[in-house]
Design a protein around this nucleic acid. Structure first.
Lengths: 202, 202
DNA sequence: GTCTATAACGGGATAGAC
DNA sequence: GTCTATCCCGTTATAGAC
């Protein structure tokens, strides 16, 4: 249950949690009102439609994360290493999405390309992706742009999977892999992805 | 539309296609009957419930892929390289899942951990994962088992994302990245993942 | 095995009082 | 802004004729 903040915020918080847990189609507006302790009509009053609610839930979290990515990238100096660029991209996702169910929420977004490629990806991610791909290209001058883009997608795949499976990864690894130490997880991921980026083209 | 094979096969084929395109919750039994050209009651006759239909759709495709993975792994000889092991895992996914919408179907599975971790993952993937992780551990004797498992998950993430976003990746990269040359894509993915596996632990 | 018809239910959205 | 009550639609599943 969720009883902090105003009605609108409580709706967003509960939606975020439930969407992350069960997917967008898997959660009804009635599920949300029950969790948020608000009336069904309040959702339509504040957000008109379910689709608009979904967009509001996502946008509220994407922008701070991407803002932080820009900040970290710009704080790197003129000739950043691949490791630093990769970390600038991944750290905010683990930091800001680490609490609550934001991780699985973003995982749900990445898991629905057809649904979000126009509404979310092209709006919120495309400019950011271009910026990071450009910076990576400079740090990897021998790698063709096409190859950089592919590898950027590989990195996004690692991140999405981590966000989605974070909740069960400890269980299916018999307790060996824990998400608790986020800094260690980040460094582990950065090493893997950076090594991939720096590998020879053939 | 789909008009080959018997009723049961047509239902499976259409389900596979539509589930891949729109997700399990996003497709109604009526969508399936319309595409398959069969009657609504035929689904209940052959599969009883929607959940059982989903499981049947998935199981029909998972086992041949995993069988091929075992075959490739066993064909490698006593001391395979990391590249060879990674390729043995990834190739069947791209080969057998390359046609139709099998790719996005498997992506949907990987995108729903809570739904499938018990029904699918633990049943079909767990033994396979253990086998591959063991083989990778032998090829990477200095890497702790925990680290091998983490990196195995990173690889799965790359694969899942590729399966899910394959359909839109060409569009969002302005035509630069194409899924058409599957062999090139496979080699590109193997290089990236193998480099990640072989990177130093810290 | 395959159809029509329908039951039984839950979904999103809205009207209108307060 | 928040409530109750309700509309209307699509959903899964089933009954029963053929």
């Amino acid at each position: 249950m969720n009883d902090g903040g105003g009605t609108k915020t409580r709706i967003l918080d509960s939606s975020e949690k439930l969407f992350g847990l069960k997917g967008f189609d898997g959660v009804s507006l009635r599920d949300i009102t029950a969790d948020a302790g608000v009336n069904l009509a309040a959702i339509n009053y504040h957000f008109q439609t379910k689709e608009a609610l979904i967009d509001a839930v996502i946008s509220r979290r994407i922008e701070p994360v991407n803002q932080r990515r820009y900040e970290l990238l710009e704080g790197l100096g003129p000739e950043p290493t691949v490791e630093q660029i990769v970390e600038a991209f991944l750290r905010p996702a683990l930091e800001k999405l680490g609490t609550a169910n934001l991780g699985s929420l973003m995982g749900r977004v990445m898991a629905n390309p057809d649904l979000f490629v126009d509404r979310i990806f092209n709006v919120h991610f495309a400019p950011l992706a271009e910026r990071f791909i450009g910076t990576l290209s400079k740090a990897l001058p021998d790698l063709p742009l096409t190859e950089v883009i592919w590898r950027f997608h590989f990195m996004i795949g690692i991140m999405s999977h981590q966000l989605l499976w974070g909740g069960v990864i400890e269980r299916i690894s018999n307790g060996l892999c824990s998400m608790k130490d986020r800094e260690a997880l980040l460094q582990r991921t950065v090493r893997f992805a950076a090594a991939g980026f720096k590998s020879s083209e053939r």
